[in-house]
């Protein structure tokens, strides 16, 4: 078991970490090339730059954008992401691993804060999963990986928390550590190839929408008006129309911002 752990922390970690960093870099570059090609192909070259910047930044904290529709979901999602990003990067033990292996480290958060954030992730991840399963519209637009990934992401948090905060037998510790290390590596490898890639592709989504689709301001409102839905909240009554309008109404909200 010790040898397996060494492999997971050593060569396998190097493979998965390199894949994560270079793979993310690769999809960013591919995305940029794609964007440039799309721009060159598009008929009119007018891009609402100011609007795009504003939207990009506003969607980095999506709570204000989707607050009105699914307030609970949005709050839980933001909490989940805070823990998910802060703990792996700034946990003291992880920073120390870096210091020992490559010789430099960075700022780290205190252990108690890390514990609370870990608990936050452990609690919010199943909630996100449940809300995705229980909401009819969400369920309908979800792929398999949308269901699996929140549950997979939470495994390193649970095992890490057990390792740090409870007294378990040496064997139990090693088993926990094994899952912690190997699932962690798996997640790192998955970053550029699954929906987790939105952590680097997020800033580009507004640009792609803006250049590729060219929705004028207030397009969503006009569509709703044209379809005759007025001020009715359209995103969850009729399943068919609901699905169609969900995408559009979020677009409309962006436009309003």
């Amino acid at each position: 078991m010790e040898a397996w752990l060494e492999f997971g922390r050593g060569p396998l970690f190097r493979i998965s970490f390199t894949l994560m960093v270079l793979g993310s870099l690769r999809i960013i570059i591919l995305q940029i090339i794609g964007m440039i090609e799309a721009y060159n192909r598009s008929a009119d070259k007018i891009v609402p730059w100011g609007d795009l910047w504003k939207k990009t930044f506003s969607w980095l904290i999506p709570i204000f954008n989707i607050w009105r529709k699914r307030p609970v979901y949005s709050v839980i999602s933001v909490l989940f992401h805070i823990g998910l990003i802060l703990v792996p990067l700034f946990l003291a033990a992880h920073v120390l691993l870096w210091k020992n292996s490559v010789g430099f480290g960075w700022f780290h958060i205190s252990q108690s804060l890390a514990d609370y954030l870990t608990l936050l992730v452990i609690i919010t991840a199943p909630l996100l999963f449940l809300m995705r399963v229980l909401n009819k519209n969400s369920r309908f637009i979800s792929r398999t990986q949308d269901f699996v990934i929140p549950l997979l992401l939470v495994i390193p948090f649970i095992t890490g928390y057990i390792c740090v905060n409870s007294s378990i037998s040496a064997t139990g510790y090693q088993v926990m550590m094994f899952f912690h290390v190997y699932v962690g590596n798996l997640i790192m490898i998955m970053v550029p190839f699954t929906k987790i890639a939105h952590c680097v592709l997020m800033p580009f989504s507004q640009f792609v929408t803006g250049v590729g689709w060219k929705f004028p301001k207030g397009a969503g409102d006009k569509i709703i008006a044209t379809l005759g839905y007025g001020n009715k909240p359209t995103w969850f009554d009729n399943p068919r129309i609901g699905i169609v309008t969900e995408a559009e109404t979020s677009q409309e909200q962006e436009d309003k911002k």
């Binding site: 050593g10 060569p11 396998l12 190097r14 493979i15 998965s16 390199t18 894949l19 270079l22 793979g23 690769r26 570059i29 591919l30 090339i33």
Partner: peptide, 22 residues
Amino acid sequence: ARTRYSLAFVLATAIGFALVTH
């Protein structure tokens, strides 16, 4: 082609790194 070549490059680099550092 672009996707394929860049993937080959990234994969080879990752494996190379594992070998190199070991």
